[in-house]
Design a protein around this nucleic acid. Structure first.
Lengths: 229, 229
DNA sequence: TTCTTGTCACCTAGGTGTTAATAT
DNA sequence: ATATTAACACCTAGGTGACAAGAA
């Protein structure tokens, strides 16, 4: 069985409609997909990997702003037509693969090396996604079968876990300002854009900035839900 | 067979008498111990590890300076007596261990996570060494024998490689100023102490500093010697 | 006096959203 | 008008030797 880490944070993003940046060079996900794993054979070898499947066959489009200004995006999405042709369905193997069950279970497994790109010609092995499309991350565990004819047992040596709260829309720039603010509030690497951190205030204060999105800090919840399998 | 990377740099340090800093928290080696490996079974599993053995049973001592000043260290060492009691003989497994021969051979294997400490009570798994003692790094390759009674074949599944040019004296502060200068000249992380880099000059110039040790740049040599085995 | 420790400025390396310019 | 790109300031994270203070 598998338990999603930082579920409370994922839930908070999911409630607003999670967006993940895709760039030509590749961008990490935030939150990072991390899991705790239980019930493996400690002595057996496993491969851990992720892939991303389209949630629907739609292309999205931002709701036109009544102000006619680019400066503020709404949180509403319009369906803009059928999805673009599917991208090469790449897979990301966790770099520690293969490893023993004991190794995987003894600490949180983090996919922080996984990067998303919109470059169809990417040759860095990153996950290729279409911007303005919705995706569902999937987590797969493959038991490395030591038997000679292991190919015949592929079905039973394979297990997939899906956490619906990790769904997101791929974007090249954030569309929903509340998503931006929650990323700034919760991602350590975006600390430079925070305005209400009491520690470094008013030294870091920049006029005209938006208030801190503190919902994350208020609603932490250590309980994770089981995976929909 | 195994080939030492950056042999020219190691030679240059060795000629001056290599020193490696040891700290309580643990300090990386520079140069980093890196090797290219040939002749493994691509499909077999191997563990790669290093350990450090005393070169002799002596404790060293800096030659007293004729100036009576701490500010300048000589390049000469005196024997100061018998070695201190041996430290716990720890080993450092390369973090990618175990891995297939194909994986190890397809790129340079770098021990850049290895750290040296003088803290006898270290609980970070670092290599514990006595300051003012000389050490010889050793590199070991262990074939992971799939046979049930693999312990009986430990001897033949084990191979050790020694590069004498990687010998060094463990120190808590550099003793030979020429070693300091060569470290500054060749370690990217010490760039802040360089004075003769034409790129950033004179912006970075600090008065009273010593000239750049450019021997490394002058004497690069891509040919590595075979290991003394 | 010699050796060790802790703090520091200055780097490398790379992950953020912002912004202005460009593409579609 | 909307979507994408590239350069940028500002962070995290951590590897350097210098230096002053302390320990032996």
């Amino acid at each position: 069985s598998v338990q999603l880490e930082m579920k409370a944070l994922w839930d908070e993003f999911n409630q607003l409609g999670t967006e993940m940046i895709v760039t030509k060079a590749g961008r990490r996900m935030f939150p990072t997909f991390q899991v705790k794993i239980f019930g493996m054979d400690p002595m057996a070898d496993y491969m851990l990997l992720m892939d991303f499947v389209p949630v629907d066959d739609k292309r999205y489009r931002q709701l036109p702003s009544p102000l006619g200004r680019y400066a503020f995006h709404s949180s509403s999405w319009l369906v803009a037509g059928k999805a673009d042709p599917a991208t090469p369905g790449r897979v990301h193997y966790h770099p520690d693969s293969p490893a023993k069950g004991a190794q995987w279970m003894k600490q949180i497994v983090s996919f922080d090396k996984l990067k998303l790109t919109n470059n169809l010609l990417d040759d860095n092995g990153h996950i290729i996604l279409n911007s303005m499309h919705r995706y569902q991350p999937r987590f797969h565990v493959v038991y490395v079968d030591p038997r000679k004819d292991s190919e015949k047992y592929a079905e039973e040596n394979f297990k997939t876990f899906v956490f619906e709260e990790t769904r997101f829309t791929a974007v090249t720039a954030y569309q929903n300002h509340r998503i931006t603010q929650l990323k700034i509030a919760s991602n350590p690497f975006a600390k430079g854009f925070r305005d209400c951190d009491p520690e470094d205030w008013p030294r870091n204060h920049r006029p005209g900035a938006l208030p801190l999105m503190s919902a994350f800090a208020r609603s932490r919840n250590p309980v994770s839900s089981p995976a929909h399998q």
